[in-house]
């Protein structure tokens, strides 16, 4: 995860809160949050090697396929759930959002922006986008539900989800002026803090 993004998420995570990180990878973010924000953290991951790294870091981790595993937390109570660059890999991103906001007060979502200008050029010349940020070919990518910043914000509105904070990333992980002015065109990634009344 880009340093910028992890900093932003760290700012949003309340001290001492209970959080769950879907697609936690090797546990780097959670380890940091456990150390610096004193959170009670749990990661969800499907890759065995990454799970072993979490255990090595003493980061609690659960092996689950997020697509099927979200139901397991229905009776749980978290302060925050995090889904960094995973929502576009799910079968039903809209249902996933609803679920996460049912068992956690707030939810952090980060997602790649298909509206980024380099993606548009790719599509303009009749090709599926392959960019430094989305490096896989269409037949190899795990991203089955890519969307633009605008699409995502429209979905939030449609599902009555409040966007409490947002933050956009430009190439090289900088918070550029251009990506703030017109994120749907200039941002490679959007980072959202969501809430549902």
């Amino acid at each position: 995860m880009a340093v910028e993004i992890s900093k932003v998420i760290q700012d949003w995570v309340p001290n001492g809160s209970k959080i769950i990180d879907f697609g936690c990878g090797d546990g780097t973010l959670l380890e940091k949050l456990m150390k610096e924000k004193n959170v009670q953290g749990y990661g969800v991951e499907i890759n065995d090697e990454k799970i072993l790294s979490c255990i090595e870091k003493n980061v609690p981790v659960i092996k689950l396929d997020i697509d099927f595993g979200l139901n397991d937390f229905e009776l749980s109570n978290f302060d925050m759930s995090i889904m960094a660059r995973s929502i576009q890999c799910l079968k039903n991103p809209n249902i996933a959002l609803e679920k996460m906001l049912s068992f956690s007060k707030t939810c952090v979502v980060t997602l790649p922006n298909l509206g980024y200008w380099r993606c548009r050029i790719n599509l303009g010349i009749g090709k599926m986008p392959v960019t430094p940020d989305l490096p896989s070919s269409w037949y190899e990518t795990e991203n089955i539900h890519l969307c633009t910043i605008r699409d995502f914000e429209n979905l939030c509105e449609k599902q009555s989800i409040t966007i409490k904070e947002k933050f956009f990333i430009s190439p090289k992980n900088k918070k550029g002026i251009m990506s703030s002015l017109n994120p749907n065109f200039f941002a490679t990634e959007g980072v959202y803090l969501l809430e549902k009344e």
Partner: peptide, 20 residues
């Protein structure tokens, strides 16, 4: 095992669950 893990999470126990 997953049942134990979910209960552990709900009770704020530091717990990992893996399936091999």
């Amino acid at each position: 095992g997953k049942e134990i893990q979910i209960a552990a999470i709900n009770q704020n126990i530091k717990s990992s669950y893996i399936v091999l």
